[in-house]
Amino acid sequence: MRKDFVRRVPVILAVLLIAAACTGQPAEGGGETDDAQREVIVLAAASLTEVFQSLEEPFGATRSDVSLQFSFESSSTLVTQVQQGIEADVIATADEVTMGELESGGLLAGPPQVFALNELVIIVEPGNPRNVQGLPDLADPELKVVLAAEEVPAGAYAREALGSAGVEVEPVSLEEDVKAVVSKVSLGEADAGIAYVTDAQAAGSAVSTVPIPEEHNVVARYPIAVLNDAPNDNHAQAFVELVLSEEGRQALSESGFGLP
């Protein structure tokens, strides 16, 4: 009896493994017709976390059989995931360069549309105890400044802004994404950082902000597009339309985004 069972274990394992492999493959034939109980997978830049989550309810109100599934990462990570063949319907990034890579790679169903603008802002500890007035103050070697890493859009924009203002900053850390910049400042580990207006707003009273003048600021343009292999493209298109609609624009504006 026992021996029989032992001999069967690998067989069971193999069956499980094969089963797992099969579900990993998108059901190509049935995908179009079997719309019931489908998820629309949205890949979005980390800075869109709050606003996209707030759109979940209006989207579901008209489509009870479809649910939204978000994956918030830095834009460059999302692009890498799409290039490696992740299964998803919609992508929204924090800059046009990363989206451009997907477009030129033929991975998009249509041309990307810019739906939101974001600006940079200096974030400091609540009440601005170190009295930071603008970008030049960040050059103070006594000040612990954190920036996003150059590899992610927020970091590239911050560097652009500092360059345009002619300020040389020696950051203590180059964080992996803009949310990490905000949390380092809100935890009091860093004195100042550069983040998107929207992230500063989402952090609430945990940080104070110091504006960056228009002439040095960088406007991040957020494009959105349906992916080429979207298994669920009519619902994916519906989500893009919601983001571009008046309702979507209002939500974006409430979160601190600029509108195109």
């Binding site: 830095s74 460059s76 990570t77 890498t80 590899e151 950051p171 180059l174 964080e175 992996e176 990490a180």
Partner: peptide, 24 residues
Amino acid sequence: ITFAGNLPGTTQTMPLAVYLALQS
């Protein structure tokens, strides 16, 4: 990356370098 941050030469170890390289 959470406690020490990420700065080349000071706190950027190989795994951090790998992760950030993955971004670009």
